[in-house]
Design a protein around this nucleic acid. Structure first.
Lengths: 349, 349
DNA sequence: ATAAGTAACGGAATCGATTGCGTAAATTAA
DNA sequence: TTAATTTACGCAATCGATTCCGTTACTTAT
């Protein structure tokens, strides 16, 4: 089949006896074009099926009205919601969203980073891969004044926009909650400690224990590689077989927490009676598992929306590489059955 | 801070005393450039921090090495996996992925469609919104020879590439499975019937009943609007309060199926003893709910990969608008506890 | 009535990479 | 040795939209 010729502003110009400059200005509502002319041109454009060519405009303006997103994996509830929030906000302002996943490999992060740069994105939103230590691949964005927003998994040795939750307080509160439920030997499923989020959750856990005068036992702190279901199952089995098993677990994610609940049940250990469990993220599985999983809820979609807004609002601003602008969002402890040893205390009105 | 000047092929040309043509050809491994020159130019490019400008190349070639994705919502397990598969395949071939979500609104689908078109995407992958009936907004892609791949939720009045699962057979098999487990009054949670996937799942359900001589009872077929948890809960309650309640449910998705299980448990109805349940999709919640949910597994990521490949392989081909090329993928019945009334029969080796 | 101002538009360069066509030099064939 | 290729490049147009400078025809102020 034959391909129809695309309609350009030159075609419109010829058809309407105007210059391409006027067509362009009219389509962009430039003030030096009369209302009447704008109306005529826009109607003709509509009728002739004109569609702007973003590549041409982008080349001329050296930007593409596109936000690049660089994350580890799309098919995780948190990440999917994050992207969803980014996409919604971006689209409202007429921006497109380019996505890429690193699968937690540094190498992929670097090459995806370059691919996004080559597309001349307006800004970049990043959640670091597990492996990433060096930040060199982000420098070219800074050099060009292209804003970078790190979200959730952020670096601490690189200045830029950052959107995070207060992982320390969340970890502290989750642990405190278990303590208030009567737990005295609380284990922690910790994530890779070079990623800020896991490090801070652990710090919160440790400080809560200290504050309540509970001993810190190294063999109750399990360092996970990926916080997967399998890892969680194995760790739980090991913990529950100890001579003096823990009576609570604070897991740095829900997947491992759910595996702990299911493993405990299989081993005949009562949750929360003998083992209280609290997770992190509020994934869908948290409300489905039985007993339902207490957890820390993450405003994922909102984080995405804020990150996108950072980029949209940045336009033309000067980039101060000497400081970071950090947005910290609150979290919420969602108390469900897996941690509820005592009856819920009614809040005063 | 000052913005560094970007390095272009003209800068390389000046620096190395070659013409821009030679630089361009060298970077693209054109055969008329000597190996030695290519090596020299590429090394200089690397050293000077040259990065190609996709906008410029795209404008010249009238394409952007970008695949557009238009779906209803990103934060659904199936969709997230689909995109993940698309992204992986696309990136391996050096393509970027632009995403947009319609939130199941026809209006959004149309405007996102235009936005993607304006970015001169190489191809479009679409899963239709719930509302979409008219297909006019896709015509401009056909006119330009830009391939469209409909995936999962596909139209039947529009010729193009299509990637689907055999929803009819899956619905048939799921229902048959319940029958073989001894169910005689099987309810169906049906989705919106103007979307092919739900229509076919229902057809499969109906035919299985017919084949086994079971009566079709209209009051056992519940038509859902969104197959949400709440809808499922309500429907289940209604069903179980009937004088002659069903002994099995085939739900067109897992969310509603899980809600049925939880609702039944709350009402003291044994699953699968008094009510066997099977869902669709194999979402993560399916293996977490107790009893674990039998379901139909969807090769989501693979569907994404195949869709992307369709577009990558299409390049330059002639578009025959008189036929559809349909790829049908198999599904698998995953038998878990929610449907297992009888002991599992061992397969012959 | 004349200078000054403004409204409405056109010309042409520009963004960066690609590529058809042309050409000089080097190599091979005869 | 000369003609015929082949190798290795350069020139300049091109893609479509934007925008800096004009320019012309009107208004408005004085």
């Amino acid at each position: 089949m034959k391909i129809k010729k695309e309609v350009t502003i030159y075609d419109l110009a010829k058809e309407l006896n105007y210059s391409p400059s006027t067509i362009s200005r009219a389509l962009n509502n430039h003030k030096s074009i009369s209302k009447k002319t704008i109306k005529v041109i826009k109607e003709a454009a509509e009728e002739m099926g004109y569609r702007p060519n973003n590549l041409a405009a982008g080349l001329r303006n050296n930007k593409s009205n596109t936000i690049g997103v660089l994350i580890s994996r799309i098919n995780r509830p948190f990440m999917a919601s994050l992207i969803s929030g980014i996409e919604e906000t971006a689209r409202k302002s007429g921006y497109n969203v380019l996505i890429s996943q690193s699968n937690d490999k540094y190498e992929n992060e670097v090459s995806n980073c370059n691919a996004l740069y080559d597309s001349r994105i307006t800004g970049l939103i990043v959640s670091l891969s597990m492996e990433t230590v060096d930040m060199g691949h982000f420098q070219k964005f800074m050099d060009q004044g292209i804003p970078i927003v790190f979200v959730d998994r952020v670096p601490d040795n690189f200045n830029s926009y950052k959107v995070v939750i207060d992982n320390y307080t969340a970890g502290y509160s989750a642990t405190k909650h278990l303590i208030e439920q009567g737990c005295t030997r609380i284990a922690h499923f910790a994530g890779a400690q070079h990623r800020n989020i896991y490090e801070e959750r652990k710090k919160g856990y440790l400080d809560a224990l200290r504050e309540y005068g509970l001993p810190i036992e190294d063999n109750l702190i399990i360092h996970f590689k990926t916080l997967s279901f399998e890892e969680g199952d194995k760790a739980t089995k090991k913990l529950l077989k100890m001579d003096n098993p823990p009576d609570g677990i604070f897991s740095a994610n829900d997947t491992a927490a759910v595996s702990a609940i299911m493993c405990a049940k299989k081993m005949g250990v009562d949750v929360p009676g003998e083992l209280a469990v609290i997770g992190f993220n509020d994934d869908p599985i948290a409300s489905i598992v039985q007993p339902s999983l207490s957890t820390v809820s993450h405003p994922a979609s909102k984080m995405g929306a804020i990150s996108a807004r950072r980029i949209l609002d940045h336009s033309g601003q000067n980039y101060d590489t000497d400081l970071s602008e950090i947005t910290v969002l609150g979290t919420e402890i969602i108390v469900r059955d897996s941690s509820l040893k005592k009856a819920k205390v009614l809040e005063p009105k």
